[in-house]
Design a protein around this nucleic acid. Structure first.
Length: 261
DNA sequence: TAATCCTTTGATCGATGTTC
DNA sequence: GAACATCGATCAAAGGATTA
């Protein structure tokens, strides 16, 4: 039996005919990392959302511990309901922009993140090219009800790729498809975005130690959200139940558009 | 030029639906 | 029936766009 909400919601299924862009789906490791003796993660293009790439087990358990240790040594910002850390450029949630020239500059990006970034660039060089990622935000989601409301990452300051490394615990990210607008329109502050009707919502499991890259449609034509729910579901099946001990830390890398100009 | 409206990102709350 | 999940409405803040 389906709920009213579910009836009106169109969920993508494996059986759906892929778009021309999706037909080009390929499971590729875009570039071989320097060490050939370690298990090489695969960067897979997602079937459902153009521009979404996921690499499971992108980092090792040892790297995860090392990153967590580094994060826990640092000072947290408790301005939001979730705790955050900003590196490279601080993001101002009130003015919704990045700033490093008004006395609120963020600390430099820690070495352990730069090392991760180097591995990302090796794995995804064909996708991200020579784009420099100079801003890092660490978000911590603890307990049973912390999440982030649906949104599209700011388009005026941040570049075309959003890169997320998940640490600690798994989560589900929900993608809400928006009415399409051109990338030229996106940089106009006045552009109004609405979800497509009937709504298209795609659930994606982000497992710990995985890498996610949002580009193209995944970056600009979908809102993403981490629901503030006790259970995480994919296609209505519970894949994770949060307890009070739940802790997921995400490390998000962004490029700064003013750097690209 | 000043006032007003609109935008984005994120938070909160209430109503309604679902599950156990 | 209680607890939980989902959805939509509303609000905040600051800057940009529009209008008078």
């Amino acid at each position: 039996m389906y709920s009213t909400t579910e009836k009106k919601r169109k969920r993508l299924s494996e059986e759906e005919i892929p778009s021309p862009e999706q037909k080009d789906f390929k499971q590729t490791k875009l570039t071989v990392p320097s060490s050939s003796l370690v298990k090489v993660p695969l960067l897979k293009q997602d079937h459902d959302i153009p521009g979404l790439y996921i690499a499971e087990n992108f980092i090792t358990k040892e790297q995860e511990i090392e990153m967590m240790k580094e994060i826990d040594k640092r000072e947290w910002n408790s301005e939001l309901t979730r705790r955050t850390q900003h590196y490279g450029y601080a993001y101002n949630y009130s003015s919704r922009n990045v700033n490093n020239s008004n006395g609120q500059s963020a600390p430099p990006i820690p070495e352990v993140f730069l090392h991760t970034l180097k591995n990302i660039k090796e794995l995804a060089s064909d996708l991200i090219g020579s784009v420099e990622f100079k801003q890092v935000i660490v978000n911590e989601y603890k307990g049973t009800n912390q999440g982030i409301s649906k949104h599209v990452d700011q388009c005026l300051d941040f570049g075309p790729f959003i890169i997320i490394v998940s640490l600690g615990d798994d989560c589900v990210m929900k993608f809400h498809k928006l009415e399409r607008v051109s990338e030229e329109e996106l940089v106009k502050k006045s552009v109004k975005r609405k979800e497509v009707s009937p709504s298209v919502i795609v659930d994606k499991l982000l497992s710990r130690r995985s890498l996610v890259i949002l580009s193209k449609d995944a970056r600009y034509q979908y809102q993403h959200e981490i629901p503030k729910t006790k259970t995480f579901k994919v296609k209505n099946k519970v894949v994770k139940t949060r307890t009070h001990g739940y802790r997921r830390v995400s490390v998000t890398f962004r490029s700064i558009l003013s750097d690209l100009k």
